[in-house]
Design a protein around this nucleic acid. Sequence first.
DNA 1: GTCTATATGTAGATAGAC
DNA 2: GTCTATCTACATATAGAC
Lengths: 202, 202
Amino acid sequence: MNIVEEATTEQRILLAARKVFSQKGMAGARMQEVADEAGINKALLHYYFRSKQQLFEGVFKDSSQRQFGCIWDSLKQCDSLFPAIEAFVSAYMDKMIEDPMLPLFIANEMNRDPEGLAEFIDRGKESRACFLRMVEEARERGEIIDIDPRELLVNMMALCVHPFIARPMLKHIHGITDEAFRRMIQKRRKSVPEFIIRSIRA
Amino acid sequence: MNIVEEATTEQRILLAARKVFSQKGMAGARMQEVADEAGINKALLHYYFRSKQQLFEGVFKDSSQRQFGCIWDSLKQCDSLFPAIEAFVSAYMDKMIEDPMLPLFIANEMNRDPEGLAEFIDRGKESRACFLRMVEEARERGEIIDIDPRELLVNMMALCVHPFIARPMLKHIHGITDEAFRRMIQKRRKSVPEFIIRSIRA
DNA sequence: GTCTATATGTAGATAGAC
DNA sequence: GTCTATCTACATATAGAC
Protein backbone atom coordinates (compact mmCIF):
# COMPACT_ATOMS: atom_id res chain seq x y z
CA MET A 1 0.00 0.00 0.00
CA ASN A 2 1.12 3.50 -0.80
CA ILE A 3 1.36 6.22 1.77
CA VAL A 4 -1.11 8.18 -0.28
CA GLU A 5 -3.63 5.41 -0.39
CA GLU A 6 -6.25 5.44 -3.10
CA ALA A 7 -9.87 4.96 -2.17
CA THR A 8 -10.77 1.29 -2.14
CA THR A 9 -13.35 0.06 -4.60
CA GLU A 10 -15.79 -0.45 -1.76
CA GLN A 11 -15.35 3.14 -0.64
CA ARG A 12 -15.84 4.43 -4.14
CA ILE A 13 -19.01 2.37 -4.46
CA LEU A 14 -20.40 3.74 -1.20
CA LEU A 15 -19.59 7.28 -2.24
CA ALA A 16 -21.22 6.84 -5.64
CA ALA A 17 -24.23 5.10 -4.14
CA ARG A 18 -24.69 7.84 -1.58
CA LYS A 19 -24.80 10.40 -4.36
CA VAL A 20 -27.22 8.49 -6.55
CA PHE A 21 -29.50 7.23 -3.77
CA SER A 22 -29.78 10.62 -2.10
CA GLN A 23 -30.64 12.28 -5.40
CA LYS A 24 -32.99 9.65 -6.77
CA GLY A 25 -34.18 7.79 -3.70
CA MET A 26 -34.24 4.03 -3.30
CA ALA A 27 -36.87 3.38 -5.95
CA GLY A 28 -35.53 5.87 -8.47
CA ALA A 29 -31.89 4.91 -8.19
CA ARG A 30 -30.40 2.60 -10.82
CA MET A 31 -27.58 0.20 -10.16
CA GLN A 32 -26.17 1.08 -13.55
CA GLU A 33 -25.95 4.72 -12.56
CA VAL A 34 -24.15 3.85 -9.34
CA ALA A 35 -21.71 1.71 -11.29
CA ASP A 36 -21.06 4.49 -13.81
CA GLU A 37 -20.58 7.01 -11.02
CA ALA A 38 -18.10 4.71 -9.30
CA GLY A 39 -16.35 3.98 -12.60
CA ILE A 40 -16.85 0.25 -12.34
CA ASN A 41 -19.05 -2.47 -13.71
CA LYS A 42 -22.57 -3.22 -12.58
CA ALA A 43 -21.71 -6.79 -11.69
CA LEU A 44 -19.09 -5.58 -9.26
CA LEU A 45 -21.73 -3.89 -7.17
CA HIS A 46 -23.28 -7.28 -6.60
CA TYR A 47 -19.90 -8.70 -5.73
CA TYR A 48 -19.44 -6.20 -2.89
CA PHE A 49 -23.07 -5.81 -1.85
CA ARG A 50 -25.23 -8.78 -2.69
CA SER A 51 -28.31 -6.77 -3.60
CA LYS A 52 -29.54 -3.25 -4.20
CA GLN A 53 -31.30 -3.38 -0.85
CA GLN A 54 -28.08 -4.20 0.97
CA LEU A 55 -26.19 -1.47 -0.85
CA PHE A 56 -28.93 0.95 0.10
CA GLU A 57 -28.75 -0.09 3.72
CA GLY A 58 -25.00 0.33 3.70
CA VAL A 59 -25.42 3.87 2.45
CA PHE A 60 -28.28 4.70 4.73
CA LYS A 61 -26.56 3.39 7.81
CA ASP A 62 -23.63 5.61 7.03
CA SER A 63 -25.73 8.65 6.14
CA SER A 64 -28.07 8.59 9.08
CA GLN A 65 -25.20 8.16 11.48
CA ARG A 66 -23.56 11.20 10.01
CA GLN A 67 -26.81 13.09 10.23
CA PHE A 68 -27.83 12.15 13.73
CA GLY A 69 -24.54 11.24 15.30
CA CYS A 70 -22.78 14.34 16.50
CA ILE A 71 -25.70 16.72 16.20
CA TRP A 72 -27.44 15.58 19.33
CA ASP A 73 -24.17 15.44 21.17
CA SER A 74 -23.70 19.13 20.54
CA LEU A 75 -26.73 19.74 22.74
CA LYS A 76 -25.24 18.44 25.93
CA GLN A 77 -21.83 20.03 25.69
CA CYS A 78 -23.28 23.26 27.02
CA ASP A 79 -24.51 23.90 30.51
CA SER A 80 -26.90 26.70 29.74
CA LEU A 81 -29.76 26.85 27.27
CA PHE A 82 -28.98 29.65 24.88
CA PRO A 83 -25.46 28.51 24.04
CA ALA A 84 -26.85 25.00 23.61
CA ILE A 85 -29.33 26.28 21.05
CA GLU A 86 -26.57 28.08 19.20
CA ALA A 87 -24.38 24.99 19.24
CA PHE A 88 -27.19 22.76 18.00
CA VAL A 89 -28.09 25.03 15.10
CA SER A 90 -24.46 25.36 14.05
CA ALA A 91 -23.76 21.64 14.26
CA TYR A 92 -26.92 20.72 12.40
CA MET A 93 -26.33 23.22 9.62
CA ASP A 94 -22.70 22.24 9.24
CA LYS A 95 -23.73 18.66 8.64
CA MET A 96 -26.26 19.68 6.02
CA ILE A 97 -23.85 22.02 4.25
CA GLU A 98 -21.58 19.00 3.87
CA ASP A 99 -24.39 16.97 2.37
CA PRO A 100 -27.40 19.04 1.31
CA MET A 101 -29.38 16.12 -0.08
CA LEU A 102 -29.32 14.16 3.15
CA PRO A 103 -32.38 15.71 4.88
CA LEU A 104 -34.75 14.93 2.03
CA PHE A 105 -33.21 11.51 1.61
CA ILE A 106 -33.74 10.70 5.27
CA ALA A 107 -37.24 12.13 5.31
CA ASN A 108 -38.14 9.83 2.44
CA GLU A 109 -36.51 6.79 3.92
CA MET A 110 -38.33 7.32 7.21
CA ASN A 111 -41.54 7.55 5.32
CA ARG A 112 -40.81 4.40 3.36
CA ASP A 113 -39.70 2.29 6.30
CA PRO A 114 -40.28 3.92 9.71
CA GLU A 115 -38.95 0.93 11.64
CA GLY A 116 -35.66 0.81 9.78
CA LEU A 117 -34.60 4.06 11.36
CA ALA A 118 -35.35 3.33 14.96
CA GLU A 119 -31.85 2.42 16.07
CA PHE A 120 -30.22 5.50 14.59
CA ILE A 121 -32.75 7.95 15.90
CA ASP A 122 -32.58 6.38 19.32
CA ARG A 123 -28.86 6.94 19.43
CA GLY A 124 -29.41 10.59 20.41
CA LYS A 125 -32.01 9.73 23.03
CA GLU A 126 -30.08 10.75 26.14
CA SER A 127 -28.81 13.95 24.56
CA ARG A 128 -32.35 14.87 23.64
CA ALA A 129 -33.67 14.10 27.10
CA CYS A 130 -30.85 16.16 28.54
CA PHE A 131 -31.81 19.11 26.36
CA LEU A 132 -35.48 18.86 27.26
CA ARG A 133 -34.55 18.96 30.95
CA MET A 134 -32.38 21.99 30.30
CA VAL A 135 -35.36 23.77 28.77
CA GLU A 136 -37.55 22.73 31.67
CA GLU A 137 -35.07 24.12 34.17
CA ALA A 138 -34.65 27.38 32.32
CA ARG A 139 -38.39 27.73 32.41
CA GLU A 140 -38.52 27.09 36.14
CA ARG A 141 -35.82 29.70 36.69
CA GLY A 142 -37.97 32.14 34.74
CA GLU A 143 -35.35 32.65 32.02
CA ILE A 144 -37.74 31.70 29.26
CA ILE A 145 -41.47 31.83 28.71
CA ASP A 146 -43.82 28.92 29.27
CA ILE A 147 -43.24 26.64 26.28
CA ASP A 148 -43.43 22.90 25.73
CA PRO A 149 -39.77 21.78 25.43
CA ARG A 150 -40.61 19.29 22.70
CA GLU A 151 -42.33 21.98 20.72
CA LEU A 152 -39.24 24.15 20.99
CA LEU A 153 -37.12 21.29 19.70
CA VAL A 154 -39.45 20.77 16.74
CA ASN A 155 -39.23 24.47 15.91
CA MET A 156 -35.45 24.42 16.11
CA MET A 157 -35.21 21.48 13.76
CA ALA A 158 -37.77 23.02 11.42
CA LEU A 159 -35.82 26.25 11.06
CA CYS A 160 -32.58 24.37 10.44
CA VAL A 161 -33.72 21.73 8.04
CA HIS A 162 -36.42 23.38 5.95
CA PRO A 163 -34.20 25.42 3.60
CA PHE A 164 -32.48 22.21 2.54
CA ILE A 165 -35.72 20.32 2.00
CA ALA A 166 -37.26 23.18 0.05
CA ARG A 167 -34.07 24.27 -1.68
CA PRO A 168 -35.33 23.99 -5.26
CA MET A 169 -38.43 25.99 -4.37
CA LEU A 170 -36.48 28.68 -2.56
CA LYS A 171 -34.08 28.93 -5.44
CA HIS A 172 -36.97 29.44 -7.79
CA ILE A 173 -39.04 31.80 -5.61
CA HIS A 174 -36.16 34.04 -4.69
CA GLY A 175 -34.42 33.52 -7.98
CA ILE A 176 -31.12 32.73 -6.33
CA THR A 177 -28.06 30.82 -7.43
CA ASP A 178 -26.19 28.08 -5.62
CA GLU A 179 -23.79 30.67 -4.31
CA ALA A 180 -26.61 32.88 -3.01
CA PHE A 181 -28.16 29.85 -1.37
CA ARG A 182 -24.89 29.15 0.39
CA ARG A 183 -24.76 32.72 1.65
CA MET A 184 -28.34 32.49 2.88
CA ILE A 185 -27.48 29.39 4.87
CA GLN A 186 -24.43 31.05 6.37
CA LYS A 187 -26.59 33.99 7.39
CA ARG A 188 -29.07 31.64 9.01
CA ARG A 189 -26.39 30.11 11.20
CA LYS A 190 -26.56 33.39 13.12
CA SER A 191 -30.11 34.54 12.50
CA VAL A 192 -31.89 31.30 13.38
CA PRO A 193 -30.59 31.09 16.97
CA GLU A 194 -31.42 34.78 17.38
CA PHE A 195 -34.91 34.18 16.02
CA ILE A 196 -35.47 31.32 18.44
CA ILE A 197 -34.02 33.02 21.49
CA ARG A 198 -35.97 36.24 20.92
CA SER A 199 -39.11 34.16 20.86
CA ILE A 200 -38.57 32.26 24.10
CA ARG A 201 -36.70 34.79 26.25
CA ALA A 202 -38.84 35.78 29.24
CA MET B 1 -77.05 11.55 -14.73
CA ASN B 2 -78.34 11.11 -11.23
CA ILE B 3 -78.74 13.97 -8.84
CA VAL B 4 -76.39 12.19 -6.51
CA GLU B 5 -73.69 11.76 -9.09
CA GLU B 6 -71.13 9.05 -8.59
CA ALA B 7 -67.48 9.90 -9.01
CA THR B 8 -66.46 9.45 -12.62
CA THR B 9 -63.84 6.88 -13.45
CA GLU B 10 -61.38 9.63 -14.21
CA GLN B 11 -61.93 11.18 -10.80
CA ARG B 12 -61.49 7.84 -9.08
CA ILE B 13 -58.25 7.30 -10.98
CA LEU B 14 -56.92 10.71 -10.00
CA LEU B 15 -57.83 10.12 -6.37
CA ALA B 16 -56.19 6.70 -6.34
CA ALA B 17 -53.13 7.99 -8.17
CA ARG B 18 -52.76 10.86 -5.73
CA LYS B 19 -52.73 8.42 -2.85
CA VAL B 20 -50.23 6.04 -4.41
CA PHE B 21 -47.93 8.66 -5.92
CA SER B 22 -47.76 10.75 -2.76
CA GLN B 23 -46.93 7.69 -0.67
CA LYS B 24 -44.48 6.02 -3.04
CA GLY B 25 -43.27 8.85 -5.23
CA MET B 26 -43.10 8.78 -9.01
CA ALA B 27 -40.44 6.10 -9.25
CA GLY B 28 -41.83 3.88 -6.51
CA ALA B 29 -45.45 3.99 -7.60
CA ARG B 30 -46.86 1.08 -9.61
CA MET B 31 -49.61 1.46 -12.17
CA GLN B 32 -51.06 -1.83 -10.92
CA GLU B 33 -51.40 -0.39 -7.44
CA VAL B 34 -53.17 2.69 -8.76
CA ALA B 35 -55.52 0.47 -10.71
CA ASP B 36 -56.27 -1.69 -7.68
CA GLU B 37 -56.83 1.38 -5.52
CA ALA B 38 -59.25 2.77 -8.11
CA GLY B 39 -60.99 -0.59 -8.48
CA ILE B 40 -60.35 -0.78 -12.20
CA ASN B 41 -58.07 -2.47 -14.67
CA LYS B 42 -54.53 -1.42 -15.40
CA ALA B 43 -55.24 -0.93 -19.10
CA LEU B 44 -57.92 1.60 -18.30
CA LEU B 45 -55.34 3.90 -16.78
CA HIS B 46 -53.68 4.08 -20.16
CA TYR B 47 -57.01 4.75 -21.78
CA TYR B 48 -57.56 7.86 -19.66
CA PHE B 49 -53.95 8.95 -19.29
CA ARG B 50 -51.71 7.78 -22.06
CA SER B 51 -48.69 7.13 -19.87
CA LYS B 52 -47.56 6.97 -16.27
CA GLN B 53 -45.81 10.29 -16.76
CA GLN B 54 -49.02 11.96 -17.90
CA LEU B 55 -50.98 10.47 -15.03
CA PHE B 56 -48.33 11.74 -12.65
CA GLU B 57 -48.50 15.20 -14.14
CA GLY B 58 -52.26 15.18 -13.86
CA VAL B 59 -51.96 14.39 -10.18
CA PHE B 60 -49.16 16.81 -9.56
CA LYS B 61 -50.92 19.63 -11.33
CA ASP B 62 -53.92 19.06 -9.12
CA SER B 63 -51.89 18.64 -5.93
CA SER B 64 -49.64 21.62 -6.33
CA GLN B 65 -52.59 23.83 -7.12
CA ARG B 66 -54.25 22.68 -3.92
CA GLN B 67 -51.05 23.27 -2.02
CA PHE B 68 -50.11 26.66 -3.42
CA GLY B 69 -53.43 27.98 -4.61
CA CYS B 70 -55.33 29.51 -1.74
CA ILE B 71 -52.46 29.62 0.75
CA TRP B 72 -50.79 32.63 -0.73
CA ASP B 73 -54.11 34.31 -1.22
CA SER B 74 -54.66 34.15 2.52
CA LEU B 75 -51.71 36.51 2.91
CA LYS B 76 -53.27 39.45 1.16
CA GLN B 77 -56.72 39.29 2.68
CA CYS B 78 -55.41 41.10 5.75
CA ASP B 79 -54.32 44.68 5.95
CA SER B 80 -51.94 44.35 8.88
CA LEU B 81 -49.02 42.02 9.41
CA PHE B 82 -49.81 39.98 12.50
CA PRO B 83 -53.29 38.90 11.36
CA ALA B 84 -51.76 38.06 7.98
CA ILE B 85 -49.26 35.76 9.66
CA GLU B 86 -52.02 34.07 11.61
CA ALA B 87 -54.11 33.65 8.49
CA PHE B 88 -51.21 32.22 6.52
CA VAL B 89 -50.31 29.66 9.16
CA SER B 90 -53.91 28.56 9.53
CA ALA B 91 -54.49 28.27 5.80
CA TYR B 92 -51.26 26.39 5.23
CA MET B 93 -51.86 23.94 8.04
CA ASP B 94 -55.45 23.34 7.03
CA LYS B 95 -54.28 22.31 3.58
CA MET B 96 -51.73 19.92 5.00
CA ILE B 97 -54.15 18.40 7.49
CA GLU B 98 -56.33 17.57 4.50
CA ASP B 99 -53.43 15.90 2.75
CA PRO B 100 -50.45 15.21 5.02
CA MET B 101 -48.36 13.51 2.35
CA LEU B 102 -48.45 16.47 0.00
CA PRO B 103 -45.48 18.45 1.36
CA LEU B 104 -43.02 15.60 1.01
CA PHE B 105 -44.45 14.69 -2.37
CA ILE B 106 -44.00 18.23 -3.63
CA ALA B 107 -40.53 18.56 -2.11
CA ASN B 108 -39.50 15.44 -4.00
CA GLU B 109 -41.05 16.49 -7.25
CA MET B 110 -39.36 19.87 -7.07
CA ASN B 111 -36.11 18.11 -6.53
CA ARG B 112 -36.70 15.74 -9.43
CA ASP B 113 -37.79 18.36 -11.92
CA PRO B 114 -37.33 21.96 -10.75
CA GLU B 115 -38.62 23.46 -14.00
CA GLY B 116 -41.86 21.52 -13.96
CA LEU B 117 -43.05 23.49 -10.95
CA ALA B 118 -42.41 26.99 -12.15
CA GLU B 119 -45.90 27.82 -13.30
CA PHE B 120 -47.57 26.70 -10.08
CA ILE B 121 -45.16 28.40 -7.75
CA ASP B 122 -45.36 31.57 -9.78
CA ARG B 123 -49.11 31.63 -9.33
CA GLY B 124 -48.71 33.07 -5.82
CA LYS B 125 -46.16 35.64 -6.92
CA GLU B 126 -48.19 38.81 -6.38
CA SER B 127 -49.51 37.62 -3.03
CA ARG B 128 -45.98 36.92 -1.91
CA ALA B 129 -44.73 40.27 -3.11
CA CYS B 130 -47.64 41.90 -1.32
CA PHE B 131 -46.72 40.14 1.91
CA LEU B 132 -43.07 41.11 1.64
CA ARG B 133 -44.10 44.76 1.22
CA MET B 134 -46.33 44.44 4.26
CA VAL B 135 -43.37 43.25 6.30
CA GLU B 136 -41.25 46.06 4.95
CA GLU B 137 -43.84 48.64 5.92
CA ALA B 138 -44.29 47.23 9.40
CA ARG B 139 -40.56 47.49 9.81
CA GLU B 140 -40.53 51.10 8.69
CA ARG B 141 -43.31 51.90 11.13
CA GLY B 142 -41.18 50.35 13.85
CA GLU B 143 -43.74 47.64 14.66
CA ILE B 144 -41.25 44.86 14.16
CA ILE B 145 -37.52 44.44 14.45
CA ASP B 146 -35.11 44.68 11.57
CA ILE B 147 -35.52 41.40 9.69
CA ASP B 148 -35.20 40.37 6.05
CA PRO B 149 -38.81 39.83 4.88
CA ARG B 150 -37.81 36.84 2.80
CA GLU B 151 -36.12 35.27 5.78
CA LEU B 152 -39.27 35.73 7.80
CA LEU B 153 -41.28 34.00 5.08
CA VAL B 154 -38.85 31.08 5.01
CA ASN B 155 -39.16 30.74 8.77
CA MET B 156 -42.94 30.80 8.61
CA MET B 157 -43.02 28.09 6.00
CA ALA B 158 -40.44 26.04 7.89
CA LEU B 159 -42.48 26.05 11.09
CA CYS B 160 -45.65 25.11 9.22
CA VAL B 161 -44.37 22.41 6.96
CA HIS B 162 -41.68 20.63 8.94
CA PRO B 163 -43.88 18.50 11.20
CA PHE B 164 -45.49 16.98 8.10
CA ILE B 165 -42.18 16.31 6.39
CA ALA B 166 -40.70 14.77 9.52
CA ARG B 167 -43.87 13.10 10.75
CA PRO B 168 -42.50 9.56 10.96
CA MET B 169 -39.48 10.79 12.90
CA LEU B 170 -41.57 12.87 15.28
CA LYS B 171 -43.90 9.97 15.84
CA HIS B 172 -40.96 7.80 16.74
CA ILE B 173 -39.03 10.35 18.83
CA HIS B 174 -41.99 11.45 20.88
CA GLY B 175 -43.63 8.07 20.75
CA ILE B 176 -46.94 9.50 19.65
CA THR B 177 -49.92 8.08 17.82
CA ASP B 178 -51.74 9.48 14.81
CA GLU B 179 -54.25 11.03 17.16
CA ALA B 180 -51.53 12.68 19.25
CA PHE B 181 -49.92 13.98 16.07
CA ARG B 182 -53.22 15.52 15.06
CA ARG B 183 -53.50 17.22 18.45
CA MET B 184 -49.95 18.51 18.15
CA ILE B 185 -50.76 20.07 14.80
CA GLN B 186 -53.90 21.68 16.17
CA LYS B 187 -51.86 23.14 19.00
CA ARG B 188 -49.34 24.51 16.52
CA ARG B 189 -52.04 26.39 14.65
CA LYS B 190 -52.03 28.73 17.64
CA SER B 191 -48.50 28.38 18.96
CA VAL B 192 -46.64 28.88 15.69
CA PRO B 193 -48.03 32.37 14.98
CA GLU B 194 -47.32 33.27 18.61
CA PHE B 195 -43.79 31.97 18.28
CA ILE B 196 -43.19 34.02 15.14
CA ILE B 197 -44.78 37.22 16.37
CA ARG B 198 -42.92 37.13 19.71
CA SER B 199 -39.73 36.89 17.73
CA ILE B 200 -40.29 39.83 15.41
CA ARG B 201 -42.28 42.26 17.57
CA ALA B 202 -40.29 45.39 18.24
C1' DG C 1 -65.51 2.25 -21.61
C1' DT C 2 -63.79 -1.79 -19.83
C1' DC C 3 -61.77 -5.98 -20.03
C1' DT C 4 -57.97 -10.11 -21.17
C1' DA C 5 -53.94 -11.16 -23.25
C1' DT C 6 -49.61 -9.91 -24.93
C1' DA C 7 -45.71 -7.28 -26.54
C1' DT C 8 -41.69 -4.53 -25.32
C1' DG C 9 -38.31 -2.62 -22.64
C1' DT C 10 -35.45 -2.44 -18.71
C1' DA C 11 -33.51 -3.34 -14.16
C1' DG C 12 -31.68 -6.52 -10.79
C1' DA C 13 -29.10 -10.42 -10.37
C1' DT C 14 -26.07 -14.46 -11.81
C1' DA C 15 -22.59 -17.38 -14.52
C1' DG C 16 -18.41 -17.84 -15.92
C1' DA C 17 -14.06 -16.20 -18.38
C1' DC C 18 -9.88 -13.76 -17.28
C1' DG D 1 -11.39 -8.53 -8.18
C1' DT D 2 -13.13 -7.26 -12.41
C1' DC D 3 -15.08 -7.98 -16.59
C1' DT D 4 -18.78 -9.63 -20.61
C1' DA D 5 -22.73 -11.96 -21.51
C1' DT D 6 -27.03 -13.66 -20.08
C1' DC D 7 -31.08 -14.97 -17.28
C1' DT D 8 -35.21 -13.74 -14.98
C1' DA D 9 -38.71 -10.93 -13.37
C1' DC D 10 -41.54 -7.30 -13.67
C1' DA D 11 -43.54 -2.76 -15.12
C1' DT D 12 -45.20 0.03 -18.76
C1' DA D 13 -47.66 0.04 -22.64
C1' DT D 14 -50.50 -1.81 -26.60
C1' DA D 15 -53.84 -4.86 -29.31
C1' DG D 16 -57.99 -6.36 -29.77
C1' DA D 17 -62.41 -8.70 -28.03
C1' DC D 18 -66.69 -7.39 -25.85
